[in-house]
Amino acid sequence: MKIDKDRFNNFIHSYTKDELFYRSLYNAEREHPETFSQYVDTLDRNFIEQHQLYVPSLHDSWFPYISENEFFQTYSQNIYIAKHNRYSPEYLHKHEFYEFFYVYSGTCINTIQGKKQTCRAGDLCIIPPETKHSIAVFDDSVIINVMIKSSTFHGTFFELFTNNNALSHFFSHTLYEKTENNYLLFHTQSDTVIRSLIEDIYIEYYGHKKYSDSLLDSYLMTFWVILLRHHENHLESFLNTTHQNLALPDILNYFQANFMDITLSSAAEHFGFSVPHFSKLVKDHTGKTFVQIIRNIRLEKACRALKTTNLSISSICEIIGYLNPEHFNRIFKETFHMTPSEYRKKHTNL
Results as ranks from 00 to 15, higher is better:
Asn27Gln: 15
Ile127Asn: 09
Asn27Arg: 13
Gly114Pro: 08
Glu199Leu: 00
Leu167Pro: 00
Ile48Val: 12
Ile331Tyr: 08
Arg229Cys: 00
Glu90Ile: 09
Gly321Phe: 01
Lys345Leu: 15
Tyr98Phe: 15
Cys108Thr: 13
Leu350Ala: 02
Met147His: 14
Lys149Tyr: 08
Lys280Ser: 09
Tyr183Trp: 14
Tyr205Thr: 06
Glu29Phe: 13
Lys17Ile: 01
Gln38Ser: 15
Val146Gly: 02
Ser218Lys: 11
Leu311Ser: 08
Leu175Asp: 06
Gln52Asp: 12
Lys280Glu: 10
Asp18Cys: 04
Ser88Asp: 04
Ile203Ser: 00
Asn163Val: 03
Val103His: 03
Ile194Asp: 10
Tyr322Phe: 15
Lys115Gln: 14
Phe138Lys: 07
Ile144Cys: 05
Ile126Arg: 04
Val146Lys: 01
Tyr91Thr: 10
Glu99Cys: 10
Ile251Lys: 01
Thr42Tyr: 04
Leu175Ala: 11
Phe138Asn: 12
Phe170Ala: 00
Asp123Ala: 10
Phe186Glu: 01
Cys317Gly: 04
Lys2Ala: 01
Phe161Gln: 02
Trp224Asp: 00
Thr339Asp: 04
Asn310Gln: 11
Leu246Ile: 10
Pro340Asn: 09
Phe255Cys: 10
Ser105Tyr: 11
His337Arg: 10
Ile201Arg: 04
Leu350Ser: 03
Ser76Thr: 13
Asp213Glu: 14
His59Trp: 02
Ala247Met: 10
Ser274Cys: 00
Thr162Met: 12
Glu326Arg: 13
Val275Asp: 05
Ile135Lys: 05
Val40Met: 06
His270Glu: 14
Asn85Asp: 12
Phe11Gln: 04
